[in-house]
Each structure stands twice: as C-alpha cells, then as structure tokens.
Design a protein around this nucleic acid. Structure first.
Lengths: 205, 205, 205, 205
DNA sequence: TGTTAACCGAGACGGTACGTCGTGTCTTACC
DNA sequence: GGTAAGACACGACGTACCGTCTCGGTTAACA
C-alpha cells in the first residue's frame, strides 16, 4: 500500500539538465518577459523534456526562483567572497548611502531586473511563493542592515530604543516601492536623501 | 489618412453591460483569485458576449483596473461626497497615525485586498499598467499626504527644506512593502512606530 | 393580437440597395469563394446595413440565388431576346452538340462558374434551396431539351416510346457530373461523343 | 533544409481516439446535418481534445472523408472480403440494372446519405477535396463499371470502338444528378430505363 | 405641407465556433 | 529509473460572424 506518486530520486538527477533549465528560464524571462515565458518554452530552449521540469519543480515561478537563487550563488562564487557583506566604516550614513547606491545600480541591470520583478510580482499574488521569496532572498539581505544598525547602536549613532528591523525600512522600502511600482524615478540623490531624512527625521530639532 | 480599425462608438455603449462586467470581475477575483479569473469567466458571469469585453478593454488587467476605480467612485459617492480627504487637526503625528491605521484596516478588507493585490502584481511586471495604476489610484492618494505635510511645514512642524513627496514615503512605503511582499506583519503599533521614527529620525538628538 | 414580425413593405424597398447587394454578393463569391463570403462582407461591400439584407432575404444562399437569377435576366435583356432558346435545324445531333459546346463554354466562364457551383453545392445539402435552384434555373433549361426531343420524335429521329425527360439526361447529366464533381475533364470532343453514344446506344446494331 | 512545422509522429497515434472521432463525426452528420456539425462538437462527442483532431486532419470535411472511407472498409470487411465486386452473369443489361438498383437502395439509406451528400457538396466548392473524394471513393467504383463493360466488349455485347469510361456515365451520371440535385425522383424503373436507353440508344434502328 | 411610419446606414449586443497555445499527465524508447 | 520527445484531454485565448436589437436620418404616402 505504498504511495504511487514516485518520489524522484535526487541522486540520479541530471545536473546538465538542471543547469540548462536555469539558463533557459533566465534567458527567456529577460528576452520575452515573464508572462510570455512558458514551461514548454523553457523545456524546448533547454533541450529537455517537459516532464523533467515537472518532476523537479512545481511551477514556472518555482523554476525561476531557484534559477535566480542559483544565479546569485554563482555570482558570489565568481566574485570569490562571501555572498552578503555590508561596509562598516564607522560612518553609518556613508555606509548606508553606498549600499543603497549599489542597490540602485542593481535595479538598473537588466539581467537582474527581469527575473527579480517577475518573482516579486508573482509573490504579491501567491502568498506561498511570496514568503519563500522573502525568506530566501529578501530577508537575508535585510538582516545585513539589521546587523549594521545594531553596530551603530553600539557606537551610539542610533538611539538604543529603536528597532533596527523597522528602522531599515525607512530607506529600503521607499526605494523598493519606487522601483517595483513605478511610483517615481530612482537616483543616487534620492537614496541619499532617504538616508538623511531617516537618520535625522523630518521634524525640526 | 484616418485609422481604419473602427473605434467603437461610445455613445451606443451599454451601461448595463459595463456594470455587470465590473461586478463579475470584482466578484471573481475575490472568489477564485486573479490568475483563475478569465475573460470568458467574466463574460459568462456577466451574461455578456466576450466581444463586448474585448471591444472596450484591452486585457483582463484593464477590466479590473477600471472596475476597481469605479468601485472607489461608487463607494465615495455612497459614503460622503469628497472622495479623498485627510484629517488636519493640527497634530501631524496623530493625523498620520489615524490615516495609516485606516489603511491597515483597508488592507485587511478582503473586498479591497484581492483586486488591489492583483493590480499591484500586474503593474510590477507590466509597466504600462503599472504607471496607469499609479497615476489613477496611488498618486491621488499620496498627494493628500503631500498636502498635509505642506500644511505641517506652514505650521512649523516639518522642516521647510524637506521634500514632502519623499518624506511621505518614510511611513507609506514600509507599510506598502510589508503588505505587498509579506516581508513582515502589519499592525497599528507598527504604523504608529513608523510615524514616530519618520518624524523624529532614528539618530539620537 | 396581430403578428409583430412586421412584413416588409415591398413598395418602399430601395432598388439601389438591392442592386448593390447583388453586385457585392456575386463579386465576393467570384473573388474569395462562397464559403468565405459572409453576410457582413456583402453588407459592407454594398454599403448597406446588415438588417437590410436580413429584411429581404433569409440566408446567404438565398441572396446569391436571387443575384444569380437577376444576372441571367440582365444578360438576356442585354442580349435583347428571349432568355431561353434552342436551335432546331432539323439535324438533332448537330443541334445537341452545339448547345452542349455552348454549355462547356459557360462552365469555363469564371463569372458563371463561381456562383453556379456555390448554389449547386448548397443545394446538395439543403434540399429546400436545392429544389428552388432546380425549379428556377435548371428545369427551365432542361425543358428546352424536352421540346427539342419532342420535335425530333415528330420528325421520326427519336423513337416514339422514348421519354424525352429521361433521354436528355443521357448527355446533360454526364457533363454536369464531370463539371460539378471533377470526375473527369470536359471538352467539345467529350460532349460530341456523349451525343453520339446517347443517340445510337453503345450496343452493336 | 527540412520543414520545421513538426509533423506528428504517426506511430504514437491513438487508435482509440481515431475510432471515436470517426464514430462521432458520422453520428453527428447523420443526426444534425453537416453544416451544424462542428469540430468542437465532434471532439466533445468523441471525448477528445480539439487539438487531437487538428493534429491529424485539416478540416471538418477531411475528417468526414476519412471517416466515410473507413466506414466503407469496415462494412466490406464485415460483409464478405472483396470490397468492390460487380456481377458478371453474361447478361450485361441485367447486371447493370442490378447494380444500379443496389445504388438506389444505398442512396436511400440515411446512414449513407448524410455523409455522402455532405462530402459531395463540399467537393463541389472545394476542388482539392472534390478530387480526393473522386479519387478515393468515386473512381474505384466507376472502375468496376469499366471492367464490366470491357468484359462485355470481349463478349461482343458492346461495340469495340466505345470508350467504357464515357459509356458508364450514360447510366451512372443521370442517377447521380437526380439524387444530388433533386432534379427528379429516383426509382428502379428509372434506372432500368436508363440502362435500356444507354445500351440501345434512343434513335430508331 | 406637415406628420408619421417604414426603410435605411450603422454598429453594439449575446452568442457560437473557430484555430492556436499552454497546461499537467501519460506513454514510449533510449541510456 | 531518469530522460527527450511528444500525444493526449482540457481550458482559455482573441477573432470572426451570426442574427437581433437599437439608434438617428432620410423619404414617401397620407392628413
């Protein structure tokens, strides 16, 4: 009376196919956009049977999420150091501005933008994927802000009663929203301003 | 030298069908979700031919956007008169907290949440719709924050050099991101904290 | 309690529209073929409202049948004499061969062929139209053969016990079938042979 | 330099689906008539996806043609062995009359009439299908007449200079036309008369 | 000489079917 | 047993016409 929906045997999995599927998925999303990217299209481009995709992933979004995670790991490995680091020069404002400027650059990189937007969009409407996206991609990066802000609290540059997990949203979320929803253009000047407003508040002192 | 792709005659448009289509679209999105909502489903539920939808709208997202806009107008008309208002008691922090708490309530209202998320998600991946969504829905509401902040500047409660269009993002965007992307839970306490941080900054005084 | 399906008033009918509809129908059938000819297409080409067609005809086939009949009348009128005539030189074989050769010519005239085939095809599958087609178009022409054969019987060139209505089919039907069903090519030589076989039989004397 | 429009793999074809499609097509044509028979209707009745029809046939007419051919093969297989046979008792007139009477019976059999008329009608207006219809269905049967007439020529019952392919039309085509175009009723007496006229001619001896 | 009822053009409407595309499942043959 | 290939049932797409229906605007017979 054993289950018949054969659990795939990971040890026999074809590494070759997996790589080809990642590449195809990322390429198609970049070239024709997420909505026009199809499982059949990925399979065909990767020279792979459809079943091979359905065996290992549950949906188009799932494929793309893993492909995107893999892309990040590849990039980090290539760069040859820890995937996530955050500058700590002692000057909090400068460090934040630097990281946000780098984020702006990333947002403008087409290779990053297409899959990133696609996953974000899917996550808005598909809570499960959304939470996975946050847990695996977003939160680890936000945690770096938390760490840096705690270090700033130790140095007395941030009030000790401030919750770093909330504070970081003051500069990260506005940028994210402008980028995701096209509410307004993004620029270095803008992110610098965000840091200034957030650190010092907008009320007169 | 005129275009030949016959523009439909707006004066002959059936008001009855338009209403039925709005109702069906909103109901279906709420009941079965945006991805499972189809043009055929809307047409069938509205008792309308598919062509009647394609004649007046260009896509499922377009239908939903107009339906949602109409819903807002209907609601405003039914309730008071002015569709958009913002409290101005003289106490900026209190006013902001009140509005944000109302926004939290709205975000938890299923009738609002389903179409709203769907449109936001679609806008992330479809720039044209995204910009339309912002222009017709988001920006008018953000403008109310701008006005209130300017009034606060006149009262000396906000530094005169602060750009209100950027400042408002300090409390609006974090909430938006938590809701859209499920990065963290939302609550009155959270929005209150955002207002406090944003108004006073997080650096020690 | 009178019927509400207003019987159209023939006296007020627009002659202009009728002509335009006939012309459009015949032109479209010749240009794009009967199956691709649509009521909307005819209306549009004739510069006429769809309702004007539906008011006076019951179907596409009906329009075409009348258009074709009208075409015949026009042609006869233009030729300036009786629409149907049949030579009677006293030489039955020669007369029949001449008429059949003329029929072959007609079958090869594109202006005649397209609508003629279309009506015949429709008549095969739509008994009512088929009978109307026969009664109004085919039978009057076959009657001329009957008359000529009777004249031949009077002259002693055809056995008196022969039924002319059946006899005529011996040369008319084979030609018709070859043309309608593409069973074999048609030519003067072929029709001449048919006349010879039919008149003299195929058994040795 | 090979074509890229993926030719389906015939070896993987579902025999089950093909049979179901044939049955559904023939049943629908018999029940509701050819014009009201739709691809969707056939697919639905056969419990088959539309694509499965489009994969193997190019049109409704094509499906019906193959279904009809298959029906003939099935019937022949079920009955005797040889699909096409023709009596040869030595009495040409009797043999022809027998076969034509059988044809009259067939023409009155609803199971045969509906698809047969539909295909004939389609063939009138669609030359390609018409020629296929003739080549696969009509001509093989006409060839039997040719053979029988040649045998009669050997026996001296038909003049040696007569072309059998033409001669057979003297009795076959009139019957075909009366049936197809409703030009006149058909009966045993009528077909008997045709044979008499054709064999002996209509001119006095 | 207005009035008015019908035809007329135009085309929106609720429908049905089209032929295509993609889904997720299944089967086949290969490795 | 994983794999490339692809047939299959299914469902939705966006388009084309169907036949019905309104909507002004002519137009001809009657008041």
């Amino acid at each position: 009376m054993s289950a018949n929906q054969s659990v795939p045997d990971v040890t026999r999995r074809s590494e070759r196919s997996r790589r080809a599927i990642y590449d195809a998925a990322l390429a198609l999303v970049a070239e024709i956009g997420y909505p026009k990217t199809t499982i059949e299209g990925i399979a065909s481009r990767a020279g792979v049977g459809k079943q091979t995709i359905y065996r290992w992933w549950s949906s188009k979004a799932d494929v793309l999420l893993e492909a995107f995670l893999d892309l990040g790991e590849q990039a980090a490995e290539a760069a040859g150091q820890a995937p996530y680091t955050f500058p700590d020069t002692g000057d909090l404002a400068a460090d934040l501005k630097q990281v946000l400027r780098a984020t702006v650059d990333e947002m403008r990189d087409p290779a990053f933008e297409a899959p990133s937007r696609a996953l974000a969009a899917e996550g808005v409407v598909n809570e499960e994927l959304g939470r996975e996206f946050v847990a695996k991609l977003l939160e680890p990066q936000l945690q770096l802000y938390v760490d840096r802000l705690r270090s700033a609290q130790d140095a007395g540059d941030v009030r000790p009663d401030v919750d770093p997990r909330i504070a970081l949203e003051l500069f990260v979320s506005p940028l994210a929203q402008r980028w995701l929803q096209y509410t307004a253009p993004i620029s270095y000047e803008y992110t610098d301003t965000l840091v200034d407003y957030a650190l010092n508040g907008i009320a007169p002192r």
